[in-house]
Amino acid sequence: MTQEGRRIAWKLAERLLSTDDLRDVRSFAFQDMGYGYDPFGMERESAALTYVVFAFLHRHWFRVESRGIHNVPIEGPALLTPNHGGVLPIDGSMLAIDVFKRLDPPRVVRYIVDNFAAGFPFINTFLVRAGQVFGDRKNVEDLVRHGELVGLFPEGAKGTGKLFRERYRLRRFNVGFIEIALRQRVPIVPVSIVGSEEQAPMLANLAPLARLFGVPYFPVTPTFPHLGPLGLLPLPAKYHITYETPLRFYEEYPPAAADDPVIVRMLADKVQVRVQEMLDEARAQRESVFDVGSFGPGSPGGNGHGNLTHPA
């Protein structure tokens, strides 16, 4: 952004955010390299505006509830490994907003985004400025070295590409994150997100069309593609996020274990089983998918699980 753009961004943020939120976006830890960008291209002003939009969705559209936020480390590197689903990767942004909002002091989750998105103008710039990083092993290693909180989907794009009848059945986890966790001694925080699969139930995947357009999958949902791009808007399913106790594999295994494919595979499966258990439990406790009663200004964020409610 230009200097002028940054001034306008702050004016907008002042108008649209509550005092607490504004304080948070002004003060979150940010490693400025001298020109207002951090080493991975994040810009505080862009992050603030992104927060304005997605915090609104977080509160009013998906009414995100969460528990176990104390399991997310307030400093030092960590990997957040949630399940993935719902055609568009909105689950990642809701998780990031949730951590930023409910962790004290707030931390930005540096999300690892499929580098498929890097080839698109505007999307590329928007994601980078908002603090996201494109998927590459070196990027994850560098982020961890910088002590960042990294969010990644071990399922990869396989996760969002699954059909509705397979919802919340985890695809097999990739193993790269375990190698990094062992080599660089990083805790893994298992996370489950319930609600994402219902935001856009994928009834079919038109693989030939996906190949034609060069995208990972081509979804057919109740609203897409016959309603056009509007059909990609997510349904207001209520989100439930759970954070579990960090797994510190590096305490049991030496860094050299990262070179053993058997151990790495076994640990990845362990994380997968943990996340699957969390998912099953959270789904069993869920009373209603959309929870229509929790809409409206009166009850932000709902009830029940002893979550931290959003500061007014």
Binding site: F40, N124, D136
Partner: peptide, 9 residues
């Protein structure tokens, strides 16, 4: 290209 990391060693 889009797949290259931010920091090239």
């Amino acid at each position: 290209d889009p797949t290259t990391p931010v920091y090239l060693d």
